[in-house]
Amino acid sequence: MNISFEGKRILVTGAGQGIGKELVLRLSKYKAEVFALSKTKKNLDSLVAADPKIHPICVDLRDWDATRKAVENILPIDLLVNNAGVACLTPFLDATPEEFDLTFDVNVKAVLNVSQVIAKNMIERKSGGNIVNISSQAGQAALKDHAVYCASKGALNMLFKTMALELGPYNIRVNAVGPTVVMTEMGKLGWSDPQKAQDMISKIPLGRFAEVDEVVDAVVYLLSDRSSMITGVSLLVDGGFVV
């Protein structure tokens, strides 16, 4: 599939490592002008060292006003990927208010904030646009010790579907990609135990976890014009787990 994002300005949140980092590098390779947002400067420095064409933005997504200002400063944006996410893996009975607030601030509230700024500008410009959100199989299936994380991804799924409904008349598409476990640093947090990992893999028909590139491929497809009639969809990259 020959895809080019030449002439497109793309913002990726949570771009410092994992899926976000690889996505930024891929989009730059496909000739996009890429803005990489992360709260960790050393990760951004590493990213720019790998590809000097990337524009780094260092801001904490939990800071509503600072985030809004940072995003407003790089407008216009044609394509947005809300990739940033956190996972606090605690049994339901032990989950804390702090874990809940952190998880929902990053996984849900920040998506609302960043998307509002960019979508309003798209509407003002009458340009149309495209937003892709990184969700999870955890937004559609309960996972042990993932009560708060599952709840946040479930909330994200309904948020992006409502966005698709309301922004569609402005020719703004909104979709999500829902991976199974990917062995990034966040993935290792919950699944580095071999027994626990094997229990999960046994429930995946394809018999393995996802590779980072497989998730990036799905995001690139949804960002591209090859998916021009697709909106409001959560594309699972889960090897059949939810089946």
Rank of each mutant, 00 (worst) to 15 (best):
residue 182 V to M: 06
residue 34 V to L: 05
residue 100 F to S: 03
residue 24 V to K: 02
residue 67 T to L: 06
residue 185 E to T: 15
residue 158 M to T: 14
residue 228 S to P: 01
residue 12 V to S: 09
residue 240 G to Q: 09
residue 14 G to R: 04
residue 9 R to P: 02
residue 111 V to G: 07
residue 202 S to W: 00
residue 166 E to W: 11
residue 179 P to N: 12
residue 106 V to K: 01
residue 43 N to R: 09
residue 154 G to M: 12
residue 183 M to E: 06
residue 152 S to R: 01
residue 172 I to S: 01
residue 227 S to P: 06
residue 163 M to P: 00
residue 163 M to K: 00
residue 117 V to K: 01
residue 104 F to A: 03
residue 163 M to A: 04
residue 71 V to H: 07
residue 90 T to C: 11
residue 226 R to Q: 15
residue 221 Y to I: 07
residue 176 A to R: 00
residue 10 I to C: 09
residue 179 P to R: 06
residue 109 K to N: 09
residue 159 L to R: 00
residue 114 V to Q: 03
residue 229 M to H: 10
residue 193 D to P: 04
residue 28 S to H: 05
residue 171 N to S: 15
residue 194 P to L: 10
residue 129 G to E: 00
residue 243 V to E: 07
residue 48 V to E: 08
residue 78 D to M: 02
residue 222 L to E: 07
residue 105 D to M: 05
residue 172 I to G: 02
residue 193 D to L: 08
residue 51 D to C: 08
residue 224 S to M: 08
residue 195 Q to N: 15
residue 149 Y to V: 05
residue 134 I to G: 05
residue 224 S to R: 12
residue 48 V to G: 07
residue 21 K to P: 05
residue 48 V to Y: 06
residue 118 I to Q: 05
residue 48 V to T: 12
residue 136 S to T: 09
residue 144 K to A: 11
residue 52 P to L: 11
residue 205 P to E: 09
residue 144 K to E: 12
residue 16 G to S: 12
residue 27 L to D: 03
residue 205 P to I: 08
residue 102 L to C: 13
residue 239 G to C: 08
residue 226 R to Y: 14
residue 110 A to S: 15
residue 198 Q to A: 15
residue 106 V to M: 08
